[in-house]
Design a protein around this nucleic acid. Structure first.
Lengths: 211, 211
DNA sequence: GCCGGTCTCCACCTTTTGATCGATGCCCGG
DNA sequence: CCGGGCATCGATCAAAAGGTGGAGACCGGC
């Protein structure tokens, strides 16, 4: 084993998780943790210096840029390191943007240590490393092509989810009641529902809106 | 420093988090990690053996018993160890049951290592260790004494959150529309809202209904 | 240059919801 | 045994939401 070491950058806002990933990965003799980042911005900066082969990226940071945005920023550059998303969350809302952003893999934090190490090697080699649960969902996604709401529709729907009336939404967005209703009618059609509450429920399930 | 060591049990379904907590806590010379549990059931069993002074408890496990239930099971016994909840989630839906279940403290995983160690000592001494964010919310909770919906009201509200109409809810529960409306009127009053969608939003925030 | 999607708005009509009065029966605790 | 909370229903009325069938303006792509 005289291969060059595999250089890893850990990006997570939780000190405990950083320590955990470090502890798990350092049991592999050819892995070297070259840096840790506590914010997405920091991760982008450190990844840009070319010091790492693989970035382990969390998706949610306390504030500011999120993990998907950071992933996009990192992978956009030539000669960028591979980004392996390691997160707690396993929903469409989280996975899809991360994968679109150019993540090489997506693991869940409940993965056993060996799987984690194996995924890092897979990612370093440029191949995709997906957690089984994530892989499953992606397959389903391909079968049922996904609902795309326009920006305006999503915006209106988000306000519906906050309990506002059409009138209230209109005032908030400087629109008439008619326009709001029009947007909502389109949303209902796309989601296959026929009431605002059902739309909110469906959208929460699909990860179109959050919380 | 010839104090007896402080014996700690780590309960979390994520290997990475267990490794992280272990790594962080082992920097304290008088801390000893006596065991790790990957399920809530395992945690209850290990805590019952009297081998630990403090249990670090996650709230969400993959399946089966959750952390609050495990906390209740552990603290119910005489001579039980202190339970310190350490989790990612910071919502009423998570904190309140845990505290009611007898947790001595509640920390978030983004706490800095020193704070974590300090909290373990505080908990071991039987004093309450709360993350600032959690403490804040508890204060608010005391000011606005909490909403208790009756079983029927909660049941109706849950169906509203699924997008059913009053008529549909009535059919599902074998009630007339009038009864459903009556229950909902009470729900609105208790939650301080005036529409079904707002009620769903509020209830999700308060953890009265889930997902 | 025209087509399609998006965003904006209007009018008319039906259905649903919410608000406000009720009423009855049940059960539990003081 | 009586009050109060709970659960069940009724009726009425105004407001909101949803359905239908439009229209004009903008913009990007073929």
């Amino acid at each position: 084993m005289d291969d060059p070491p595999l250089r890893i950058l850990i990006a997570d806002d939780h000190p405990v998780v950083r320590a955990g990933l470090r502890a798990v990965l350092e049991t592999e003799p050819d892995f070297v943790i070259v840096a840790e980042a506590a914010t997405a911005e920091e991760a982008v900066e450190l990844a840009g210096s070319g010091a790492a082969d693989v970035v382990l990226m969390d998706l949610r940071f306390g504030g500011g840029m999120n993990g998907s945005q950071a992933t996009a920023a990192i992978t956009a550059r030539p000669g960028a390191p591979r980004v392996l998303v390691v997160t707690t969350y396993d929903t469409d809302a989280d996975t899809l943007p991360a994968i679109e952003a150019g993540a090489t893999g997506y693991l869940l934090k409940d993965a056993p240590p060996e799987e984690l190490a194996a995924a890092v090697r897979t990612a370093a080699a440029g191949r995709t490393a997906l957690a089984p649960a994530v892989a499953d969902r992606l397959m389903n996604r391909l079968r049922a092509p996904h609902t795309v709401l326009t920006r305006r529709e999503t915006e209106v729907l988000a306000l519906v989810a906050e309990g506002l009336s059409n009138q209230g939404i209109g005032e908030r967005l400087h629109l008439t009641r008619a326009t709001v209703k029009s947007h909502l009618a389109h949303v209902y059609a796309k989601l296959g529902v026929d009431s605002r509450t059902a739309a909110v429920a469906a959208a929460l399930g699909l990860g179109i809106i959050r919380r």
